[in-house]
């Protein structure tokens, strides 16, 4: 399957992933806008790694492109993970605390 059909298929898949609503058109268009925002901003942000290493940046950007396109309906996953459930908030909070403290403490140790 070529890349173009894959993108088209995933965009068609939006409708099934979005909640059934009287004005579904609007929801689908906003979901697509959100999807495109995520893809474009994440890719643009990844280019900033060029300040560290150019070869690494090229590899990471290519990897991200492949990942983002193959896993295309991303926004439903994002939305599910950012719900108002206390357990999910707690999980991400502890995760962030762990990563932050570990990377700062061991990452910069002289």
């Amino acid at each position: 399957m070529d890349l173009y059909t894959m993108i088209c298929d995933s965009i068609r898949g939006f409708k099934s992933n979005i909640r059934k609503d009287p004005i579904t058109n609007q929801n689908v268009s906003s979901a697509m806008a959100a999807e495109l925002t995520i893809v474009s901003t994440v890719l643009t942000a990844a280019i900033m790694l060029r300040h560290l290493n150019v070869v690494l940046t090229i590899l990471i950007v290519l990897g991200l492109v492949l990942y983002l396109i193959t896993g295309m309906p991303l926004i439903s996953k994002f939305k599910r993970e950012q719900s108002d459930s206390l357990n999910k908030m707690m999980f991400y909070m502890i995760l962030t605390l762990g990563i932050l403290v570990t990377s700062i403490y061991w990452g910069f140790k002289p």
């Binding site: 909640r19 719900s83 108002d84 459930s85 206390l86 357990n87």
Partner: peptide, 11 residues
């Protein structure tokens, strides 16, 4: 119970 009260009930 926190999972009953503070779960995700908006959707």
């Amino acid at each position: 119970s926190a999972s009953v009260i503070l779960g995700d009930k908006h959707e």
